[in-house]
Amino acid sequence: MGMPGPGDTVLLAGPSGSGKTEIALNLALSLLRTTSVPVTLADLDVVKPYFRLRDMLPLVAEDDRKRLNIIEPEHRLLHVDVPTFPPTLHASLSATDRVKIVDVGGDAIGVGAVAQFRETITNGRHALYVVVNTLRPGMNTHARLKQMLARIRAGARLDVTGLVANTNLQAETSAEEVQAGYEAVKALGDSEGLPIVAVVVSPEYADKVIPLLSPEAAQLVSVLHMFNRILDTVGSHTEF
């Protein structure tokens, strides 16, 4: 898709815990910083009891905040253990004057939730990226990665645009692991006819990792800030 513009929808899917929310948040913040386009960030992941996008608002400069519209379950409904979407979701996904970034739920069941908005999404330009961390359990073989992708494709009923290699062990990540993750995701992409659109690294280890990556992997690197480290920021102000 290239740089998303007004009316475009970017969907992030992937297995549970692969980093979809982090990447959605980074993408939204980066669009706000580098362009003048208004951004809608929709959290459709209903299985995430301790993390809310709204808590990340202080990270957005005040001026940019006016251009950001966050859509997520109401706080009073967040913990009722009933998957709910806000009533404004359909209208928000139809908007033609904003970039819409959608963080969909984990695996096939989570991604199935967006299938109901399929027509709205496919009315405009859209891209569906599958985020993969090969150091999550059950993601360590080619066969398992293929199964995962097949489940997500079937659940979303949308074409997958590309893959995001997000292999990491948080601060303990090594260059070998990022490279091996890239290669595993590349092999998956090659067998499925899908490009890798990004190799994600965190600033915590970017400097020591990037110089050791192969040139193909290095040219795809995006350095993303990871926000969901609850123990780093915890305090009585934190709402769960």
Binding site: S16, G17, N133, L135, R136, P137, N140, N168, L169, Q170, E172, S174, E176, E177, A180
Partner: peptide, 16 residues
């Protein structure tokens, strides 16, 4: 390379 995986606590304790 380590033998580590990145896991959510509730999953890791189940595997443990």
């Amino acid at each position: 390379m380590s033998e580590k995986v990145l896991m959510k606590g509730a999953e890791a304790l189940a595997e443990g």
